[in-house]
Design a protein around this nucleic acid. Structure first.
Lengths: 234, 234
DNA sequence: CTTCGAACGTACTAGTTAGTACAGAAGCGT
DNA sequence: ACGCTTCTGTACTAACTAGTACGTTCGAAG
C-alpha cells in the first residue's frame, strides 16, 4: 500500500531532520555502491555521517529499508534526466543519437547508480521489485524511444524488426558496461574505459552504432542471415 | 611467486581428493555467483558439498583463496571457448559476426561467469588483479579480433578508427548485459532478455550491430559528427 | 601388521554486526 | 511553564561467521 519504502518522514520534519536524512542517504549510497549489500556496514555508514546508527534505524527502520531508500533515490535521478531530454525537433536518427548520448553521459557521471543496479541484479532484483514507484515510473526511457522509432519507421529510414525495448537494451548495455565492468576490463586489457581522453569517441560510438544498426536496410526483413526477419516487433 | 592461487594440490592427490576439490569448486561457484563475495557463506558451501568446511580450508586456505580459485576456473573456461573459434576461412564481416555470436552464446550459457565478473567489479577487481594467470592469458579475445579487423580495414570494408579493444568492448557489453542486468530489466520493462524465444533474434542483433557499425562508411573519418575522426586507432 | 602422511570430521572460539533498550533533549502548541 | 511528540546519543545483546585445535580414518609403502 502506501510506501513502507520512502518512509522518509517527509513534510513535517524539522529542517535539521531533513538534512540528517539526506546526509545518511548520501553516505549510504556510496557505501552500498562500493561494497554491495552484504558488504556494506551500517556502523561504517553511521561513522561517516555526523549522526549515529540510532538515527539510521529511526529514519529507515532497517538496513534493507535504508538500501531501498537509496535505490529509489538513484532511480528517481535518472528518471529526471530522461524527462529532460528534448528531441521534438530532431529527425529520428538525430533523436536516437541524442538519447544514446544522454544515457551514456548519465551513466558515466552517476557511477553509483550503475554499481547499485549491478548489486541489485546479483540479488535477483528482489529489493527493486518491492518498490512500486520504480516499477511504475521508470519506463520513461521506453515511451521516449517508442515515439522516435515509430517516426523513423514511418519515414522509411529505420528497420522495423527492432523495437523500443531492444534499442533501450542496446544503449543501456553499452553505457552500463563502461562503468560496471571498468575494473576487470582495465585489469585485463589495460584500457580505462572512462579515461576522459576516450570519452568523446566513446560517446560518438554508441550513437554511430545505434543509428547504423537502425538505418541498415540490409538487415531488415530477409537480412544477411536466416530466413524470416525477427519476431515481428512490438 | 608460483601460485598461492591454484593451490589446488594437483597431481599427487588421490582420485577422491580431486573429486572433492572439484565438488567444492562447483558449489562455491554457484554460491559466490548467487550471493556475492561477502554474501556467500563458507558454511553454506560446505553444507551443499559432501564434505565439510574443514576441507575447504584444507584445500583452499581461506574464503578468499576459494574465491580466487573459482575466478580462475571460470576465466579458464572462456579462454578455452575463445581458442576454439574458427574464423580463418571467413570474410572479415562474417568472422566478426561469428566472434560476436560465440561471445553471446558463451555468456548466456555461463551466467555464473558474468555474475562473478560483476561481483569482481564491485570490488574494483582487487581479487582478479592477484591472478597472474588471468591477466596474462585472457587477452585471447583481442588477438583474435585484431587479425579480423586488420583484414577488414585492408580490404577497405571496415572503418579504421575503431580498434580491437573497442570492438571487444561493444560485443562484451551487449552479451554481458543480457545476463548481468536480466533481473532489473525484467522487473522494470517486463521482458526477460534470456527468454529462449528471443534468443535467435538477440544473437542476430549483435552481429548486425557490429557489422553495420564497422562497415558504415559514413561514420569513418569525417563522419556524421564533428570534424576529425577518432583518436587514430592503434 | 605396522607406520606414516595425506585426507577428513567435530566441536569450538574470537571477532563482528544488525538491531535495540533506555535515557535524554529539543521543538511547539496551549 | 507544561505536556506531548519528534528527534538524538550511549551502551548493550543476540546471532552469526570465518577460521582453528584436535582427534580420527584411510591407503600405501615397508
Amino acid at each position: 500500500m502506501s510506501g513502507q519504502l520512502s518512509d522518509v518522514r517527509d513534510g513535517a520534519g524539522t529542517e535539521r531532520a531533513v538534512r540528517t536524512q539526506g546526509d545518511i542517504l548520501r553516505v549510504a549510497t556510496e557505501e552500498f555502491a562500493a561494497n554491495g549489500y552484504s558488504g556494506a556496514r551500517v556502523d561504517e555508514i553511521a561513522a561517516r555521517t555526523r549522526t549515529t546508527k540510532r538515527m539510521i534505524y529511526y529514519y529507515f527502520g532497517s538496513k534493507q529499508g535504508l538500501y531501498l531508500a537509496v535505490l529509489e533515490q538513484v532511480y528517481a535521478q535518472i528518471r529526471r534526466v530522461e524527462r529532460g531530454i528534448q528531441i521534438d525537433e530532431l529527425s529520428p536518427d538525430e533523436a536516437l543519437r541524442t538519447i544514446a548520448e544522454a544515457t551514456y553521459d548519465h551513466h558515466t557521471t552517476h557511477q553509483a547508480f550503475i554499481q547499485l543496479v549491478s548489486i541489485e541484479n546479483i540479488h535477483r532484483a528482489e529489493h527493486l521489485r518491492q518498490s512500486e514507484t520504480i516499477l511504475r515510473e521508470n519506463v520513461t526511457a521506453i515511451t521516449l524511444l517508442e515515439d522516435v522509432i515509430e517516426r523513423g519507421v514511418a519515414d522509411g529510414i529505420f528497420r522495423d524488426d527492432v523495437d523500443a525495448v531492444d534499442v533501450h537494451m542496446v544503449i543501456s548495455a553499452y553505457a552500463c558496461f563502461h562503468v560496471a565492468n571498468r575494473h576487470t576490463f582495465a585489469a585485463i586489457f589495460d584500457r580505462d574505459m572512462l579515461d576522459p581522453a576516450l570519452q568523446d569517441s566513446h560517446r560518438r560510438l554508441i550513437g554511430d552504432m545505434i543509428v547504423a544498426t537502425m538505418t541498415d536496410r540490409s538487415a531488415a526483413g530477409v537480412g544477411s542471415h536466416g530466413p524470416s526477419g525477427g519476431r515481428g516487433a512490438r
